[in-house]
Design a protein around this nucleic acid. Structure first.
Lengths: 163, 163
DNA sequence: GATAAATAGTTGAACTCGCAAGTATTGAAG
DNA sequence: CTTCAATACTTGCGAGTTCAACTATTTATC
């Protein structure tokens, strides 16, 4: 093994910042969702993605992609969400390996109910401390990072039914 | 409850990017460490912080702070690390509630062995795709976010024995 | 058209982590 | 000097995630 390409000071600082953010941000949001609406952050995200999808339904594979989760993680989460009655899973007739997850009416009501508290916490922990210029700067600075992490998806916000 | 203060498009984009990064970055690093050196990312971070501390030792409380983890999480991790022989925990004579964690020689050798592969993966997933200007821009843009998340600590990179 | 390989998804076991509760010690108040 | 609260951890349990293994179906290959 060759001599390692160590990080310089700027890189170390950035890496530590990213680690801290990745640790604290999700934990904060999780705590609010669990306490207030008994949902995991991941479960919330699954419901949110379904609620924005056409017909409020997506194949499991696609759902795993847009939620940045493994298929296994999604499958476990889907079982819980189905037990609670927030979604249903059905086989696709044209490809009988595939499953389509559909948000139920109750599930839609659930996320409509959960969203305000969630957004409020996100504001408290993040946006209340940032002015619009800082938000724009962050968006610009983070774009190349995501391009590196998700080689295929240029923008995580874009993901119509086709992906 | 008043009408929620919804996020605008820029804020939504930023929030999704931060979520994606917080999901993917730690998972990628975790996978490398588990596969190559049988360490959790958190365990690695604990060893790393100890290796940089004066005398390679820190009280558990301080260690929990600098690793951005709860005391419970650290306690669980410390038990595993102690069982493997990478650290030892000893009571402090002056305050017999406190425990000091010390990196053993084997533990120091362990992180010296683990570091190159870890850094290499960090490079692959992040810094190989960013030029120095982008790194600087990210550092600048992320600073206010961390200031919001960690009201007390201005800079996560700074944390001498005093904190 | 049979066989192999790839795709879609599920499941069980192992492991980590958060929470609540518990122990031990120190500091503060009366 | 006793009591009560705060500090510094530890531990058991439960919940979520990952990994490997498995089933089922579809596509590709010979």
């Amino acid at each position: 093994m060759d001599t390692p390409r160590w990080l310089n000071d700027e890189e170390i600082a950035l890496w530590k910042r990213l680690q801290a953010i990745s640790e604290i941000l999700p934990a904060t949001v999780d705590a609010q969702l669990r306490a207030d609406v008994e949902l995991t952050r991941y479960e919330y995200y699954v419901l949110a993605m379904l609620s924005e999808a056409p017909e409020r339904r997506l194949p499991m594979s696609t759902l795993a992609l847009v939620t940045n989760g493994s298929l296994s993680r999604l499958s476990h989460a889907a079982r819980r969400l189905e037990q609670e009655g927030w979604i249903v899973r059905e086989r696709v007739p044209t490809d009988r390996r595939a499953m389509i997850a559909t948000l139920t009416e109750a599930g839609f009501a659930k996320i409509v109910d959960a969203a305000p508290g969630h957004v409020e916490r996100v504001r408290e922990v993040l946006f209340d401390h940032l002015d619009p210029d800082q938000v724009a700067a962050l968006n610009a600075a983070l774009a190349p990072v995501l391009a590196a992490l998700l080689p295929e998806l240029g923008d995580p916000a874009e993901c119509p039914g086709s992906c």
